[in-house]
Each structure stands twice: as structure tokens, then as C-alpha cells.
Design a binder for these strands. Sequence first.
DNA 1: CTAACTGTACTATGTGTCTTAGTACAGTTA
DNA 2: TAACTGTACTAAGACACATAGTACAGTTAG
Lengths: 126, 126
Amino acid sequence: MFTINALSRTPVYEQIVDQIEKLISAGILKEGEQLPSVRSLSIQISVNPNTIQKAYGELDSRGITGSVPGRGCFVMPNARERIKSRAKEKLSALTALVEELLQAGVSREDIIKTVDSITSKKEESK
Amino acid sequence: MFTINALSRTPVYEQIVDQIEKLISAGILKEGEQLPSVRSLSIQISVNPNTIQKAYGELDSRGITGSVPGRGCFVMPNARERIKSRAKEKLSALTALVEELLQAGVSREDIIKTVDSITSKKEESK
DNA sequence: CTAACTGTACTATGTGTCTTAGTACAGTTA
DNA sequence: TAACTGTACTAAGACACATAGTACAGTTAG
């Protein structure tokens, strides 16, 4: 269920945060549902419990999940909406990347062609 | 001429590499031209000479520049083409980012609109 | 030739982040 | 009561990044 790349430059706890957000966005983890416990998940993916705790803490602070001592960590009711609005802010990253490609001499055609091919691909699976 | 963000997660030497590549792509640093010396640039942007050396070494290994002991570091004749082909490989990063946004629930319209607005803006300054 | 420059190669040190390890405490629940 | 839950610590190690200082060899202008 989780894939951790220990060699990546992005920290493990951040990889966990990203993947949980994706699971929620995809509807695999439903709102209100309980996440694996800190300890069980740490064993499952061979990572220290502290690292999981850090990931859950980050999700909590984003309002994606809510942790209750003694009970567990649960997906918040409006989690998907929060993730979506966070992602919308990431459109600036898209802007930066496209500008970088343009400045490096990549043609508009190549860029637009790439974006179109993905967005249309996703259209089919609708 | 150089702007270093010491707080960024991307290493200083990498920021230098990026900015030099941009200067070359933009035609400000021309092919065959000599870059500032390791020591002078280190003073100019208040960074350790070793950090500059690491940046120049990276550029050398990419074939963007060529360093000659005793003479200096020079922009290679085919530098712009090398940068462009490297950037083309980065189209996969664009793919990944767009897919991430889609999965997070951002609409195709928002994505395409963002890309179009940038590419058309650059069209004007042609 | 000399002096001042060039890149390069080291060692040593400090720092910050990430991760692991271990322990402990309080709340929840079957 | 026992086994679970999240949480909060301290301590230690690993690693990349950056700084500091020194040294060497090649180049070049005077």
C-alpha cells in the first residue's frame, strides 16, 4: 500500500504524507476512515514510529486528518476539499516549471503537446 | 547578477548551476565566454570558494562549461544545445506534476489555462 | 623571471535535517 | 485489566552542505 524510496532526496515522512493524500484524493481512503496506527504502519513499511508520527502530525496540521490520543488518526470530513485547494496553490509550481523549460529553449509545441496528452488520457478514464 | 537563497532546500551550488544555465540559455553568457573566477565569484556572492568549485565542476561534467587550470572556466561551444536537450528530458517532470495536480482534484481547465497563459505571454516577447 | 592570477585537491570543522532507538505517559476500548 | 491508541521526550548516528584554511601546478601579464 505504501512505497518508500529511502534514496530519494525528499524525506520519508514527506513521502508518506504525499501518498496518504493521494489515497484520499483517489477515494481509496475515505473521509472519516481510520488510518493505520503509528506503530503498525511503522512495522508495515519498516520505518521508525517517530517518522510516522511526524507524517501524521503534518497531516493533522494541514487539516487533512485528525488524531485523537487513545483512539487513532482519522481522515477529516473535508479532507479532499482541503487537498484540492492546496493543490490549486501548486499551479504556481507549474508556472515556474513551464517558464524554466521555455527559457531553456524547449518549444511551446512540445510543452503543450505533453500537457494535452496527459489531460486527454485522464479524460478517457472518466 | 546572482541571487542566492540560503534558506532554500536546494543547495547553494545547485542554485548557482541553475542560474548560470539560465544566463547561457538567455544569451547573456555567450558560448566561449569566460565565467568569473572561482575566487572572485565567491567574494561577489559571499559564498565559500569550495561551493563555487562544486558548481563549476557540475557544469563541467554536464559539458556546459570547460575548466582549464591556470586559465579559467569557459562556456562550451555547444552549451545551449546541451541545456536544451537536458531540459527536454525534464518534460517527464512536467508530466509528473500535471498528473499530481489532476489526482489532487484540480480541473483540466485550470491546468491548461495556466500553461496557455504562460506560453502565450512568452509569444509576445518574441 | 616574477607576481598575480587561474583551477584543483586536500583536511578539518560546524551545522542542520532526517532518521533511528528507547522510554514514558495518558487516554481509549474490548 | 490488558492491549491498544497518540504523544512527548532524550540521545545518538548518518548524511549532505557549507565554511575555513592550506597547498600545488598551470597560465599570463608586467
